[in-house]
Computed example of a mutant assay.
Amino acid sequence: MQRQSSYAKDSGKLYLVPTPIGNLDDITIRAKKVLTNADYIAAEDTRTSGILLEKIGVHNRMLSFHKYNSKERAPELIKLMQDGVTIAEISDAGMPVISDPGYILVEDCIKHDIPVVPLPGPSAFATALIGSGFDAQPFTYYGFLPRKQSEQKPYFEEMNKAKATSIFYEAPHRLVKTLKNMAQVFPADRKIVAARELTKIHEEFIRGTVAELNSYFAKTKPRGEFVILVSANTEKPKQLAWPELIQLVNNVVKQGKSKKDAIKQIAKNYHVSKNELYDKYHQK
């Protein structure tokens, strides 16, 4: 077991600082203060982040930290923090660690007992979720999906069955193809939302069914970065007769489970009373 107090000692620390996903007014007072006072700012793209920092009035030294150099750079940053240096890690936009290599640095900090201080702030998928109109609890966030249809299909099959809202990111030049791939798995009337340009002047939520959004984007060129949200599967499992449920119990027992565990599993899967199924099974 490990306990960490973010403010327990004066040695080096890692601050995880969210940056605006569009609207610069979303930078917090605390985030700006941390970025100003840190010894270094570790950024995915120092050019992109340099423009952002200039606009919000932060002038500080930056180090590049991205997916292509993270494994080599992480030990260097760990050594700096062990020597008392404070580092603020930022993503190109939004939350560090979410769809960026920040988790590698966090993992190494934890291993070396270096305090990790996460700041709250902007996040594209959370912003899209609360504006989607879908149930926010529970939800599953997938980040960016693979590009190939064959690799996307298992994700869509999982989302199609999910009893939770599903969320993923997509680039505009891949959106049409991804929506077509979704149509191969989801029923045409499944509700989805495409949220684009969040917090920016052209922010938009396009709500409809899989079929409707496919039709819309076949005629309208996608612009901006997209967050795609898929509504939870609310279909109830098919109600089976008792003899069919008993047969399913027998099938599970043949796979090596005890009768008690098999009854519990089938009762849960088909939303029937465990006690009633137990009685019916032993009356057969």
Results as ranks from 00 to 15, higher is better:
Tyr7Phe: 06
Tyr7Cys: 00
Asp10Tyr: 02
Ser11Thr: 13
Leu16Thr: 10
Val17His: 04
Leu24Asn: 13
Thr28Cys: 09
Tyr40Met: 10
Ile41Val: 09
Ala42Gln: 01
Ala42Glu: 08
Thr46Ser: 11
Arg47Asp: 08
Thr48Val: 11
Leu53Val: 06
Glu54Tyr: 03
Arg61Ala: 07
His66Asn: 14
Asn69Thr: 06
Lys71Glu: 08
Glu72Pro: 03
Arg73Gly: 03
Arg73Asp: 05
Ala74Arg: 01
Glu76Gly: 07
Leu77Glu: 04
Ile78Tyr: 01
Lys79Arg: 15
Leu80Glu: 09
Leu80His: 00
Gly84His: 08
Val85His: 06
Ile87Ser: 13
Ala93Ser: 11
Ile98Gly: 13
Ile98Tyr: 09
Pro101Trp: 01
Tyr103Ala: 15
Pro118Gln: 05
Gly121Cys: 07
Ala124Gln: 02
Phe125Leu: 14
Ala126Asn: 13
Thr127Phe: 00
Ala128Ile: 04
Ser132Val: 00
Phe134Lys: 07
Gln137Glu: 15
Thr140Pro: 01
Thr140Ser: 10
Tyr142Pro: 00
Gly143Asp: 10
Leu145His: 09
Pro146Cys: 12
Gln152Thr: 12
Pro154Met: 09
Phe156Gly: 15
Glu158Trp: 02
Glu158Cys: 00
Met159Tyr: 02
Thr165Asp: 09
Ser166Ile: 02
Ile167Met: 06
Tyr169Ser: 13
Ala171Gln: 09
Pro172Trp: 01
His173Gly: 12
Val176Trp: 02
Phe186Arg: 10
Ala194Val: 08
Ala194Met: 10
Ala195Glu: 08
Arg196Leu: 06
Arg196Phe: 02
Thr199Gln: 09
Lys200Gly: 14
Ile201Gly: 11
Phe205Pro: 03
Glu212Leu: 06
Leu213Pro: 10
Asn214Arg: 07
Thr220Arg: 07
Pro222Asn: 00
Gly224Glu: 04
Val227Phe: 01
Ser231Thr: 00
Glu235Asn: 15
Lys236Glu: 14
Lys236Gln: 14
Gln239Trp: 05
Glu244Asp: 15
Leu248His: 10
Asn250His: 11
Val253Phe: 10
Lys254His: 03
Gly256Cys: 12
Asp261Ile: 04
Ala262His: 04
Ile263Glu: 10
Val272Trp: 10
Lys274Asn: 14
Tyr278His: 10
Asp279Ile: 01
Gln283Ser: 13
